[in-house]
């Protein structure tokens, strides 16, 4: 059994304290959904820090009435309606997924009349230091992927994107832009790796990419692919 590194333990604490910027927060939220050990450390920090917020207080009686009045009108088809449940669960999805969905909708000019959409795969790529972060969304049907940098600086070098499946071997998906969204079509031979659970990662490389199709630079941002 592996244990969480000190960096990850501190990251979980930073997340609970609310210290991370929006991108760092989104990437930690995505990680909670995919990494049970990290999720457990987040829960442990919530329990550890909870006494700072403790101290019960008597609530004025009118508050419950106000809350009830502010609830949406009852439609009579709430409970057990599968479709509604789906949308309710969407309203509860993590900030990261919601933010990525927002980006997706902004990027698709034809999104005004949404057809029955295929469920996209998404990933929030981040680093422990929060210095580099990106989001990616992928449609398996078309192989289309949009990679959007939130903050990304590779200096003289170029950010190369990799897909790393369970066996740990990185496969290059090419260089992406560091200052604007990159839309790409994932090559047919790499699509087999683009499933839920694979990891996307960025390393700084020469403009021609890592020699021999292998990364040479350190991973400056990474994130697991997950279903929206």
């Amino acid at each position: 059994m592996t244990i969480l590194s000190e960096e990850d333990i501190a990251l979980a604490g930073e997340y609970v304290l609310g210290l991370l910027d929006a991108a760092g927060d989104a990437s930690a939220t995505a990680r909670i959904a995919t990494d049970a050990m990290f999720a457990a450390e987040v829960e442990a920090w919530r329990v550890r820090l909870a006494p700072m917020l403790s101290g019960d207080a008597n609530v004025p009686a009118h508050i419950w009435g106000n809350i009830q009045n502010a609830l949406p009108e009852q439609t009579g088809q709430d409970v057990g309606s599968g479709k509604l449940l789906f949308w309710r669960s969407l309203t509860g999805i993590s900030v990261s997924a919601a933010a990525i969905l927002g980006i997706l909708l902004l990027q698709k000019p034809d999104a005004a009349a949404p057809p029955a959409p295929e469920v996209p795969l998404i990933a929030a790529l981040g680093s422990e230091t929060g210095e580099a972060s990106l989001t990616a969304s992928y449609e398996a049907g078309t192989g289309r992927m949009i990679v959007t940098p939130v903050s990304l600086d590779t200096g003289e070098l170029y950010p190369e994107l990799w897909i790393i499946p369970a066996d740990g071997t990185p496969h290059s998906l090419g260089i992406v832009a560091s200052d604007k969204a990159t839309t790409m079509t994932v090559p047919l031979e790499s699509r087999q790796y683009m499933g839920s659970g694979g990891t996307l990662a960025i390393t700084p490389e020469l403009q021609t990419g890592g020699p021999g199709g292998k990364p040479t630079g350190p991973v400056i941002a990474s994130g697991k692919i997950t279903t929206l």
Partner: peptide, 30 residues
Amino acid sequence: EEALQDAYLTIWNKAASFESGRASPISWLV
């Protein structure tokens, strides 16, 4: 008081994302 009302409306909207296996209900609510 306003923050409390706001919090319960958020809880109403987000409750579907609560996973009982992952977090205790009280720490999720807090």
